[in-house]
C-alpha cells in the first residue's frame, strides 16, 4: 500500500524539505460528486526557499528554477483537465509566499481516484506498480472510507536531523465535508465540526511518514432524509 499521491505536488514542486503546511480538503455530496482541494503552504520558509532557488545545484542535485516548478505544476493541471469525470480545474501559484493551490470538481469518487492514479503514473518512473490498483477512498452513500498515502519511510531515514525537525514543525490537515451530518467516525484523533457536517484530522508531515495509518478513517453519516 504505497502511495505518494498527496505528496505528488510537493515532490514535483520542490523535493526540498521546508516548514510545510498541507491542507487536503474533500467535499462529498450525497450523489457521490464533489470537490477536491489541495493546498501547500511554504510561506514560513520563504527565506530558505529563496536562498535555495538562488543556487544552481544543491547536494549534487540540480535546483529547479521557478519556471521549472511552474511548468511541472502546469503539466499536472493540464493532465488533470483531460481526465474524464473531472471538471472546473482551478489552481493558483503564489511565488512570493510560496502557496500552491489546486482545486477540481469530480463526478464521483472513482473518477477522482482514477484521475489521481493516472497522474501519479504519468509522473512516476514506475509505470507498473501494484500501488496503482489500490483504492484509497471509497463511498457507498452512507459511509466514507479514507486511507492515506505512505511516504517513503526509507527516505526520511536518510534525511538530516534538521530536515526531520522541520517536518515535525509542519502541519498536515485533512478535512472531509458532507451534505448531511456525520453520525460517527473511527479515528480517535479526528475532530467533528460544530455543525457536524465536516471531520478534520491534524498531524505533522513527519508523523505521517512514520505511520501512514494516522489519517485513516471511516466516517458514517446520518441516514439520508
Amino acid at each position: 500500500m504505497k502511495h505518494r499521491i498527496y505528496f505528488l505536488i510537493i515532490g514535483l514542486v520542490f523535493g526540498l524539505t521546508s516548514c510545510i503546511e498541507i491542507i487536503d480538503d474533500v467535499t462529498i455530496h450525497n450523489d457521490g460528486s464533489g470537490t477536491y482541494k489541495y493546498t501547500v503552504n511554504l510561506s514560513a520558509s520563504k527565506v530558505k526557499i529563496n536562498s535555495i532557488l538562488a543556487l544552481d545545484s544543491l547536494d549534487g542535485k540540480k535546483v529547479p528554477s521557478k519556471e521549472d516548478i511552474e511548468n511541472d505544476f502546469l503539466d499536472v493541471i493540464e493532465s488533470l483537465k483531460k481526465k474524464s469525470g473531472i471538471t472546473n480545474v482551478d489552481y493558483s501559484m503564489d511565488f512570493s509566499d510560496y502557496i500552491f493551490k489546486l482545486q477540481c470538481d469530480f463526478k464521483s469518487i472513482e473518477y477522482l481516484q482514477d484521475a489521481i492514479k493516472a497522474i501519479v503514473k504519468e509522473q512516476s518512473k514506475e509505470k507498473d506498480s501494484e500501488e496503482y490498483n489500490y483504492n484509497w477512498i471509497s463511498w457507498d452513500g452512507n459511509k466514507l472510507m479514507r486511507s492515506i498515502p505512505e511516504l517513503d519511510i526509507k527516505q526520511t531515514k536518510s534525511m538530516k536531523q534538521e530536515d526531520i525537525d522541520l517536518l515535525k514543525t509542519g502541519n498536515y490537515t485533512s478535512i472531509t465535508r458532507f451534505d448531511r451530518p456525520v453520525d460517527r467516525f473511527e479515528n480517535a484523533k479526528a475532530l467533528m465540526s460544530k455543525n457536524k457536517m465536516a471531520v478534520m484530522i491534524k498531524t505533522d508531515p513527519y508523523s505521517l511518514t512514520q505511520d501512514y495509518n494516522l489519517l485513516e478513517n471511516t466516517i458514517y453519516l446520518t441516514p439520508q432524509k
Partner: peptide, 10 residues
C-alpha cells in the same frame, strides 16, 4: 501565511 479554521464549519 497561516490558515485559520472556523470551528463551526472547518
Amino acid at each position: 501565511i497561516i490558515f485559520e479554521y472556523d470551528e463551526e464549519t472547518f
